[in-house]
């Protein structure tokens, strides 16, 4: 395995003993005592809230109606609304075009952004893998976008993308790329592009560093041999480097993907209320708090959880990503 991420820690205690010694038993007891506080905290902040969210999705809870929260089954998900005159229609989350629009927006954003980030990350990693003076500086420089709070980077870019006073429009107009200022964050045609632009800027470093770590573990003798044989560097890259760092890329991609699928803060600040950039998280929070549909929002949260879990499992299975660490 290439990165430490991907290998499950192995216990160092030899397991081959026929009988558990007194010492081992004592150790196991101590281990559970050590683990208990952490498990309790995780149960409280992760398991219980998740269960409650799922439960709330099956109720009619509203924040403005104290004491509401009666079990209504799957009505939030799918419900045949009978108009009483023989007409009717399906309503609920599964029949809500706005929800599916949000799912599409999220998936679209994730695929485009993560693809660009992977390619750029690969490029940056290749550059950083070369020997040159000031490499430490460049590596630190690309960490800056990663360290900046998402809200701050959203505001910085919001200012740079401002339609009237933004430097980006000024730059593009000076270069002759555009003829009139573009309202990047408010125009439906460019809102998603603006979000992707900022996300790529912010998270490419993460990608690059993970890939770089993979590259630096590659055996040097392979390259020496390739050099001696006079194989073209580009060919070496595609035939040798890429296959070897593929596991590292796969792991980096899955972490970025999970992150993009739940994106919220960047959109909340950069393109609020813009129908083109409403993602699953934004949709869920809107219903939870802005629209007084606490139960419906909970249902959306649950569905989002299932969708993300589903995509992750498919990805791990199809990409044969080795997260469990078995060699």
């Amino acid at each position: 395995m290439v990165t430490a991420t991907s290998s499950l820690p192995q216990a160092e205690i030899p397991a081959g003993r026929k009988k558990k010694t007194q010492l081992t038993r004592e150790k196991i007891r101590a281990a559970w005592i050590f683990l208990t506080p952490m498990i309790l905290v995780l149960l409280a902040v992760a398991a219980w809230p998740l269960i409650r969210t799922i439960w709330l999705g099956f109720t009619d809870a509203r924040l403005s109606v104290p004491g509401s929260g009666q079990w209504i089954g799957f009505e939030n998900y799918l419900f045949w609304l009978d108009y009483g005159d023989g007409e009717g229609e399906w309503i609920g989350l599964l029949a809500d075009p706005t929800w599916w629009r949000a799912v599409w927006n999220t998936v679209y954003f994730t695929v485009i952004a993560v693809s660009i980030e992977t390619l750029l990350g690969l490029l940056v990693a290749l550059v950083l893998n070369a020997q040159f003076a000031g490499r430490g500086f460049v590596r630190a420089a690309i960490l800056v976008p990663w360290a900046i709070p998402t809200i701050v980077s959203a505001k910085m870019w919001d200012w740079m993308l401002n339609d009237q006073f933004g430097i980006l429009n000024d730059m593009f107009m000076t270069l002759g790329l555009i003829s009139a200022p573009i309202a990047w964050t408010s125009s439906p045609d460019t809102a998603m592009a603006a979000v992707i632009m900022v996300d790529v800027w912010k998270t490419t470093p993460f990608m690059a560093l993970l890939i770089l770590a993979g590259m630096q573990m590659l055996p040097g003798d392979v390259y020496e041999a390739a050099k001696v044989d006079g194989i073209h560097p580009v060919k070496v890259f595609f035939k040798v480097t890429l296959p070897l760092i593929k596991p590292a890329i796969m792991v980096a991609v899955i972490f970025r993907m999970l992150d993009s699928l739940r994106i919220f803060d960047l959109i909340y600040v950069l393109t609020p209320n813009n129908a083109q950039t409403v993602t699953m998280s934004v949709y869920a929070r809107q219903h939870l708090f802005d629209f007084d549909n606490f139960a419906y929002g909970s249902a959306a949260s649950t569905l989002l959880f299932l969708i993300i879990a589903g995509i992750t499992i498919v990805y791990i299975y199809a990409g044969r990503v080795n997260l469990s660490g078995d060699k």
Binding site: D163, Q164, A180, P181, I182, A183, T185, S186, S187, P188
Partner: peptide
């Protein structure tokens, strides 16, 4: 928008309009 109003008007609230 783009004709008699700035294209950015699609992102204007009260204060942006007043600014212009």
């Amino acid at each position: 928008p783009g004709n008699i109003s700035p294209p950015g008007v699609l992102g204007y609230r009260e204060e942006e309009a007043r600014g212009v």
